[in-house]
Nucleic acid binder design. Structure first.
Lengths: 116, 116
DNA sequence: TCTGTTGTTCGAATGTATTCGAACAATAGA
DNA sequence: TCTATTGTTCGAATACATTCGAACAACAGA
């Protein structure tokens, strides 16, 4: 099993975190993990194929937002809540709260922005 | 003078705001405006030419992060603090606080990530 | 009206993101 | 060992971002 790189707490950069969270699908992913706890990739309902989901999970992992561990053939994803709160106090909470009240929580499942 | 479009408060989207703030130069810009109040483009020290600055200001304006008004030949930029706080309570403050304590505040002036 | 200042827009060059399907790898379980 | 499950990596297609310089537009002030 190949080792998955996770940045150390001090190596987590604000710009990278904001960028990682700026994609609606990734934000949905993080909100789901935050609310419902750790999850395997396959157990999260997203409107993309698995290779795309894997790509987004990688972006989130490399930015320091999520932790990924192997369990059999599965990859268990979880939010690095403690690390993020230590590095950027209040940030995660305010972003996810903003997400909940924003009304954009179903955005990724809509057809409004489909290709013409 | 051409009118500059600003999204209404309700039209401000979290993903767009996070994306706008995920660029180190734009984040520096917003932090400066937030700390020191409104500013003309030319009065902000940034390591890019004016056309690039104009592009970033546009990105911030269209995402709803800043307000731009004309004053003579100048464009006065300011953070839409009230609108952002109303739409996403605590978000702006936690992002800018995170920025201040992150140690990345001089990132955009460094040569570490110059082209090889 | 002429000139300098301040920004915007355009075009081009370069780089990066997003998405998919196909091929691959690792593991669990029969 | 064989097979099905789960996810990663690769290659290709497409789209978008970033940056610069040049040309342009709007305005202030002489």
């Amino acid at each position: 099993m190949k080792i998955l790189h996770h940045p150390d707490r001090e190596e987590i950069h604000l710009s990278s975190v904001l960028y990682a969270l700026s994609d609606p699908l990734r934000l949905h992913l993080v909100a789901t993990l935050y609310k419902e706890g750790e999850r395997a990739c396959g157990d999260i309902e997203v409107p993309v194929v698995k290779s795309t989901l894997s790509h987004h999970a990688r972006t989130l992992r490399e930015s320091g937002v999520i932790y990924v561990r192997a369990q059999g053939t599965q990859r268990i994803l979880s939010v690095r809540t403690e690390d993020l709160n230590a590095r950027f106090p209040g940030l995660l909470e305010s972003v996810l709260h903003a997400y909940e009240i924003s009304g954009d929580t179903s955005e990724i499942f809509s057809c409004a922005d489909m290709k013409k």
